[in-house]
Every structure is written in C-alpha cells, then in structure tokens.
Simulated scan of single mutants.
Amino acid sequence: MSIAWTLFVPACFALNLAPGPNNLLSLNNAARHGFAIATLAGGGRLLAFVGMLALAASGLALVLHTSAWSFLAIKLLGAGYLLWLALQLWRADAPSLLTDPRPSRPSLWRLSRQEFLVAAGNPKAILIFTAFLPQFVEPGQPLAAQFAQLGAAFLLLEWLAIALYSYAGLRLGRLLAGQRARRLFNRGCAALLGSAGLGLLLSRRPA
C-alpha cells in the first residue's frame, strides 16, 4: 500500500484541515477555554467518526446513499443544531457575564458533546468514509485490515488538525483580552457557524 499511502496522507490531511464547523468549534473553544480543554473536547468528534467508520466498514452507510429521507433527516437535525449553536455563541459573553469576577469553569463533557453532535449531524462526514477512503483500498488485499489502517490514519490526522486549530485559537485568545474584541470574535464565529448550518440545510444528497 506504499503508493496508496503516498496519495492518501496529503489528501486526507487536506480534508482534516478544511475549515468546517468542528474545526471552528476547536478554534473558538481554545480561544475561550485554553488549548488543553479544546484538544480534549475534540475527542467527542473523534468518537463520532469512529462510529461512522464502523458503519461504513459494515456497509450500513449505503442507507445514507440510497435513502433520501435518511439524508434529509440527518441534514435537518445537523443544520438545526449548528444554527442553535450559532445563536448561543452570538449571545455568549454578554456584558453582565464579562464583568463577573468568578467565571464558571468550562464543562469538558458539554464541549465534547457539542463536538460529537456537530460531527454526527453532518451527513457529508459519513460520505467521506464511503466515497473517499475506499479509493485507497487495494483489491485482492484483506479489505478489513486496509480499512482499519486507513481509518486509524484518518483519526490520527484529524486529532492533529484539532491540535493545530486549538493552538491557533489559543494564540487568538491572547489577542482577545478586551470585552469588545472577544464579543466580536464570538459573533464572527457565530456567523460562520450559522453560514455552515444554512449551507448544510441547502445541500443536496449526492447522486
């Protein structure tokens, strides 16, 4: 699989680094709560991807390809959750909260759950595992072992992307010490998340 890996790694990492909703969450979480919290919270995303990999490996993901209703249901849930997150982020850090001298500690469980739900609510994510990964599987070789190796590599590269976005968010957080700057940053992230939700809402099932 040497040739396949040479092509797979850069193509996969490009997908991992794409500025999607989950990477935006890592960026914002790091700016608000720090590098460690954002990186650990990204484990929720990885857990969702493990489930998608299992579905793709077992062939159950074909339902998503063939069923317009399944795609529509997941799309509506995912888009609705993204829009709800955008609203919460837009309203976050109101002046009354910013002046609170005892800010509450972030809930790692809550942030991990957000990462999980955003990843699980995006039907295009599972299509990556059913349309992208199989291109690098060599016929005639053990399929399960190859898929497991490719899936593990995808998760490792995804974790690296989480760390990179979290580091970028940490650096941004140091520049956002002022109340106005942090409010603008949160609202900018909210606008991007809302745009992602609308984009998901308007997306169509691949033919």
Rank of each mutant, 00 (worst) to 15 (best):
S2K: 04
T6A: 14
T6C: 05
L7A: 14
L7C: 13
L7F: 12
V9Y: 05
C12G: 02
F13R: 06
F13P: 07
N16D: 15
N22Q: 13
L25I: 14
N29D: 14
N29L: 08
A31L: 00
R32Q: 06
L40F: 15
A41R: 00
A41K: 00
A41S: 08
G43D: 01
L46I: 03
F49D: 00
A54T: 15
A54Q: 10
L55N: 14
L55A: 15
A56T: 08
A57M: 15
A61C: 04
A68D: 04
L72S: 04
A73P: 09
L76M: 13
G78H: 08
A79F: 10
A79H: 01
Y81E: 14
L83A: 12
L83M: 13
W84H: 04
L85F: 11
A86S: 09
A86R: 12
Q88A: 12
L89Y: 08
A92H: 04
P95N: 02
P95T: 09
S96F: 06
L98A: 03
L98M: 02
T99Q: 13
D100F: 07
D100V: 03
R102F: 03
S107L: 03
W109N: 02
R113M: 11
E115Y: 09
L117R: 10
V118G: 01
G121W: 04
G121A: 12
I126M: 14
I126N: 05
A131H: 12
Q135P: 08
P139N: 10
G140M: 12
L143K: 05
A145R: 15
F147T: 08
L150K: 02
G151M: 01
L155W: 01
L156K: 03
E158I: 03
W159Y: 13
Y167T: 08
G169Q: 05
R171Y: 07
G173W: 01
R174N: 02
L175E: 09
A177K: 06
G178I: 00
Q179E: 11
A181Y: 07
R182D: 08
L184E: 09
N186R: 03
N186T: 03
A190T: 13
A190K: 10
A191T: 13
L193K: 05
G194Y: 06
L198W: 10
L198H: 06
L200D: 10
L201Y: 01
R205F: 04
